[in-house]
Simulated assay, not measured.
Amino acid sequence: MSDIVIKDRPELEYYQIDVDGTRAGLAAYEIEGDVIAFTHTEVDDAHEGQGLGSRLIRYALDDVRARGLKVRPVCPFVKTWIRRHEDYQDLLV
């Protein structure tokens, strides 16, 4: 079983997902006021198909909710993910 860690990297403006201590993906963002725009999501090819993108976005959106921010999903992956998860649609600008 892999060790998966997800964290916000505000100095780099992205959430990062690590697998066994190595970065496996990220969700880039830009914050303006109380709105966070997710601009790009990627998962390394070696980790595709493992659900890491969904885990990463769920974590990021839960963090955004806790911080009281609204979301502008510029990234197609984030836009589709929120559309498929009604319980996160209240975060949309």
Score class of each variant (00 low, 15 high):
Arg67His: 12
Leu91Asn: 05
Ile4Tyr: 03
Asp90His: 05
Val19Cys: 01
Val5Asp: 06
Arg84Cys: 04
Val71Gly: 05
Lys70Trp: 12
Pro76Ser: 14
Arg9Glu: 10
Thr39Asp: 10
Cys75Tyr: 10
Ala27Ile: 01
Ala37Asn: 12
Pro76Lys: 06
Pro73Trp: 11
Asp18Val: 00
Asp3Arg: 12
Met1Glu: 14
Glu32Tyr: 11
Tyr29Gln: 03
Ile4Leu: 07
Asp18Phe: 04
Glu42Lys: 09
Tyr59Asn: 08
Gln50Asp: 03
His47Pro: 05
Thr80Cys: 05
Ala37Tyr: 09
Ile6Ser: 02
Asp8Gln: 07
Gly25Glu: 04
Glu86Lys: 13
Glu32Asn: 13
Tyr88Cys: 04
Glu11Tyr: 01
Ala46Phe: 04
Gly53Gln: 07
Glu86Pro: 06
Met1Ile: 10
Asp44Thr: 09
Glu13Cys: 01
Leu26Asn: 02
Val71Met: 11
Tyr59His: 15
His47Trp: 15
Ala46Gly: 09
Glu32Val: 13
Val74Lys: 11
Leu91Lys: 04
Arg55Cys: 02
Thr22Arg: 10
Ala28Met: 08
Glu30Gln: 14
His40Trp: 08
Ile82Val: 14
Arg9Asn: 13
Ile6Arg: 02
Leu52His: 08
Asp87Met: 02
Leu52Val: 11
Thr39Met: 06
Gln89Met: 11
Phe38Pro: 07
Asp90Gly: 02
Ala28Tyr: 03
Arg65Cys: 08
Val35Ile: 15
Glu42Ile: 09
Asp8Ile: 00
Glu11Met: 11
Arg83Pro: 00
Leu92Thr: 11
Tyr29Asp: 04
Arg58Leu: 10
Gly25Trp: 06
Ile31Lys: 14
Val43Asp: 09
Ser2Asp: 14
Lys7Gln: 11
Val35Trp: 07
Tyr14Pro: 00
Gly33Asn: 11
Ala24Gly: 06
Asp63Trp: 02
Thr80Leu: 12
Ala37Gln: 13
Asp63Arg: 08
Asp8Asn: 15
Arg58Phe: 06
Arg58Met: 08
Leu12Glu: 15
Leu26Ser: 02
Ala66Thr: 14
Ile82Asn: 02
Asp90Pro: 00
Leu26His: 04
Leu56Trp: 07
Pro73Leu: 11
Gln16Met: 10
Glu42Thr: 09
Arg9Ser: 12
Val74Ser: 12
Val74Asp: 12
Cys75Val: 05
Phe77Met: 03
Thr22Tyr: 00
Thr39Arg: 12
Leu56Gly: 06
Ala24Asp: 09
Val5Ala: 06
Glu48Pro: 00
Val19Phe: 08
Arg55Tyr: 06
Asp18Arg: 03
Arg72Ile: 11
Leu26Cys: 03
Gly49Phe: 07
Gln16Asp: 07
Tyr88Glu: 01
Tyr29Leu: 05
Leu52Met: 06
Ile4Phe: 08
Leu91Gly: 10
Trp81Asp: 05
Lys79Cys: 03
Ile31Asn: 06
